[in-house]
Structures are given as structure tokens and as C-alpha cells.
Design a protein around this nucleic acid. Sequence first.
DNA 1: TTATGTAACGTTATAATATAACATCTTCAG
DNA 2: CTGAAGATGTTATATTATAACGTTACATAA
Lengths: 156, 156
Amino acid sequence: MAGKQRVEQAVVSVKRGVAQAESICKQNHARLTPLRRRVLELVLISRKPVGAYKLLEDLKHDDFSDAPPTVYRALEFLLTHGLVHRIAKSNTYVACTHPHDDHHGLMFVCRECGEAIESEEHRLLQDIGRCGDEHGFRIPNQIVEIEGICSACRMN
Amino acid sequence: MAGKQRVEQAVVSVKRGVAQAESICKQNHARLTPLRRRVLELVLISRKPVGAYKLLEDLKHDDFSDAPPTVYRALEFLLTHGLVHRIAKSNTYVACTHPHDDHHGLMFVCRECGEAIESEEHRLLQDIGRCGDEHGFRIPNQIVEIEGICSACRMN
DNA sequence: TTATGTAACGTTATAATATAACATCTTCAG
DNA sequence: CTGAAGATGTTATATTATAACGTTACATAA
């Protein structure tokens, strides 16, 4: 069944995501503490970008403090190390699918269902950089957020 | 003096912006009421993207209600008619510099000073649309927000 | 090994941004 | 003029995020 397979894939990708995070944190001499690891897992488990207070709900069930700074501090850490991205238009957070340094990218976000797909289109990002230059802007590594409608939602 | 000239230009552009808005609203059978016009003026006057509560402050001095819905409703109207844009990363609002229908665009936003420059790079926007297509995303007209550092801030 | 400084986390309070819901007033088509 | 839709006023509250300060855990150097 498609559902079961998808869940199994998700479990695998959570494991892989955490493993990548371990490796990156090691490189950066950063500590992936139980709390931070758990927040990352929750973001990885979520199939869509997820809000901070939703994560906080889930953390409650895990004996962590249920006060907002708990989740916001963990998210800040994960953002700093490029393990998750923040989607400004929906105030949500999503796991990075290509976590490594110098990470440019496009993030397509469905305005209907919230699904987000990350893409690394090198040439396009270069063009955006050039366009910024023309206006005096230097564009640092970042995720450019683009709102659209995904194919699934167009069917409905 | 550069300062004076800039203020005069600003006044001109406020007049022009309001005139364009008048025209667009007329076309759309929409009413640019005193409140909405005033909010648009305030956004036009501001040299940088401005927050809703800052606008609300200014509205107080003009005998409008100082409750949040006042400004948010006016902003919603202006957004709907493409007269202002919302910058999600900073929760701010900025006047559109090319107000017309079917408006695609890039918005470069300085992460230091907040300055925003709007650009219509037709080819680049097409490329972004194509890239979305490849991932099953349909990209409607919208402003793509890109964070960077402006030349003035790089000097400092 | 213990002292010690820094990082992480807990806790309380509050800031900043935005919307819901309902009452009243205005406008304008018929 | 009137009635319906639109615009605004008003009160309350939701949602997202951070400040400030105390405590605990951790790395590491003496």
C-alpha cells in the first residue's frame, strides 16, 4: 500500500537525516543534544513544514519543557547549522533536504497544502545573484521561497 | 542639498503613486477610501518597508481608529489590488513600484537596513516559472523575496 | 580530580504581529 | 427612498516570538 511504503520511507529518511545532522554537527564542533535531535526528528517526521507551537505540543510528550523558548532555541540551532529552513510566508520550519555548507536553493511552497519542495538549480541561483549585483545587492547563501500550487492540489 | 531633493522627489512619487492607485481602483471598481488612501500615502512616504503597527501609530494622528483591524484591513485591500507588497521575512509592507495587473517581480531586501528594491526581470521570472513546472508547481504572479545586503550597507 | 567558565536548558513574563466577531455607519443600485 | 453590500469602529483574543534571569550539564585546564 502506498501509505505504508511512504511511512517506511519516512522512517528511513528520518534516520538518514539525523545521521547527516550528527556528521555536520561533529564537523562544526556543535552539540546535537537530545532536545535538538528530537526537534530535528519531529521536523523530519512531518511531511510538511511545521509550526513552532505544533513542535512544542509534541515535545510535551517527551518530558521536555513546554515553554516556547525550548523549541525556538532548538530551531535556532538547527537553522544556524543549515539543518532546517524557515518558511517565512507560513511561519513554519522544514528539514533541509541537502544539508551541507554553502547551501543555496529554491523552495517551492504550495499555498494550498503547504507542501514544500527544495531544489538546487545552480544556474538559476547564479542568475538571481547576478540580478542582485545589478541592483547593488550582494546575495548570500540562502533559500529563496517561491509560492505556487502543487500538482496534487491542482487536481482537486 | 541631497536631502531636500530626495524629499521633493518623494513628495512627487507619493502624488504619482496615489494617482496610479486612483486609476487602478477605478478600473477595478474598487473604492480607494480616505483610510485606504491614507495608508497608501504612509507606505509611499516611508522610504523603507514599514510595519503595520508603525502605520497604525501614524493613523492615530489622522483621526482614524487606532485599533489593529483598521490598518490590517486597509493593507489587505492594497495588497489585493497590487498597490503594496508584503515582505514576509520582516513582516513589513512596501509600495509597489510598478502597479499594474499580472505583476511578477523580484524584491531585493537588505537584511541590514531593510531597504527593498523591486525588479522586473522578465527572463529570470520565466526561468523560475519553468523550474517550478519541473517540480509540478504552477507559479502564479507573485513577488519573489530575496534577502541580501545593499551597497550602502556594505560600505559601512 | 576538582575547579571553573561556557553552553544548554528551565521558567516566567511579555513583546510583536494578526485576526475573529459583532455593531454601526456609508454608499449606491434599483 | 430603501435595502443590501461594503466599509469602519470596537472589543477581545489568537498566533508567533523573544527577553531576562536562574539553574544545570559539560568540557577542559590546573
